[in-house]
Design a protein around this nucleic acid. Structure first.
Lengths: 185, 185
DNA sequence: GTCTATAATCAGATAGAC
DNA sequence: GTCTATCTGATTATAGAC
């Protein structure tokens, strides 16, 4: 097949960035077109309506999530480590698109909620395969979600040091819970 | 002083509910007025502009946060318990207003971010006073934020059972970290 | 495949009656 | 203190040229 038009990808990226940086309200067709470097008419050629544009990012996140879960599963540092560290990265492609969809999920787009729900379930499941303990896995997954939430409104974010500390805690607890009788060897 | 007009409070409540249920875009002056049972003109008497309405919820959250932290500090079940349990309640007054502001924080309202930041800091600090351990306190605080985030887009929420499990985990870890040498008695 | 121009709709805000 | 009516500007979407 012929290479997909570059304009399409640029429009999707611009839409996601605007949603994250300035919110749903600011992500108008005109603003998206401007940032993508096309005209409003040009945008509407690729995405005939705003709903079509929304569907575009939703599909994009679905694809990215599948790839992300594979990477997470294969990560040498482990799934929990991978999850918490990437949950503070909101300027990578995945972070931007994930946060963009979590903004859409607040509006009248029920499918956005479904896509997020699936991502959340896949992460929790993958962490659980690694840690074994379901409660601890849920805790890690919740922390990841909390990190995204904080980062998304530019709160006084956590640095690498703080994430390191959390991961040490998680590993200690995992070890303690694995050896049932006498924790911490 | 005379009793504050009931319409003002009803408008604020309606605005917060609409923000949470349907997003920033749906929370128009007309929609807010309708839900509050007043006309657009009536609304604009109490809040002369949309910015004034936004300032209204922000101030409201500030007041509610101070009260919430006091309640948390005095909670017989403990601060961590109180935080995680109330983080799944998004239909109480505090939950609605907190989530409403976290939505405003995504738009062009820098003060919303400040107010949320303060709430976050106050919670983490209060939990830390109870648990002692700063890393564990941060973990609990992040879980609370994650629970709010999940609840806010109506994800497959966690039930009371799951919260109970998490709290048992937190208490175990707190106990283990308190007795430095030999965890868990 | 991308543009300009424009129609239709909707949001925010003002004026003035009651 | 609350209402109706109205204006202005922004936003989505369409039509048709290039």
């Amino acid at each position: 097949m012929p290479p997909p038009p570059a304009a399409r990808a640029k429009v999707l990226r611009a839409f996601a960035e605007l949603l994250v940086e300035s919110g749903e309200r600011a992500a108008t067709l005109e603003a998206v077109a401007d940032r993508a470097g096309v005209s409003k008419g040009g945008l509407l050629y690729h995405f005939p309506s705003k709903d079509a544009l929304v569907d575009g990012v939703l599909d994009h996140l679905s694809a990215l999530t599948s790839a992300d879960v594979e990477t997470m599963r294969a990560a040498p540092e482990g799934a929990a480590d991978y999850l918490l560290r990437t949950s503070t990265v909101i300027d990578g492609e995945f972070g931007v698109v994930y946060l963009a969809v979590s903004r859409l999920a607040q509006g009248p787009y029920p499918r956005a909620r479904d896509v997020l729900d699936e991502a959340q379930a896949a992460w929790t499941q993958t962490v659980r395969e690694e840690l074994g303990d379901p409660v601890l896995s849920r805790a890690v997954s919740l922390m990841g979600e909390g990190l995204y939430a904080l980062a998304s409104f530019g709160a006084t974010g956590l640095g690498d040091r703080e994430i390191d500390d959390l991961l040490v805690l998680v590993r200690d607890v995992a070890a303690a819970r694995a050896t049932t009788a006498r924790p911490r060897a």
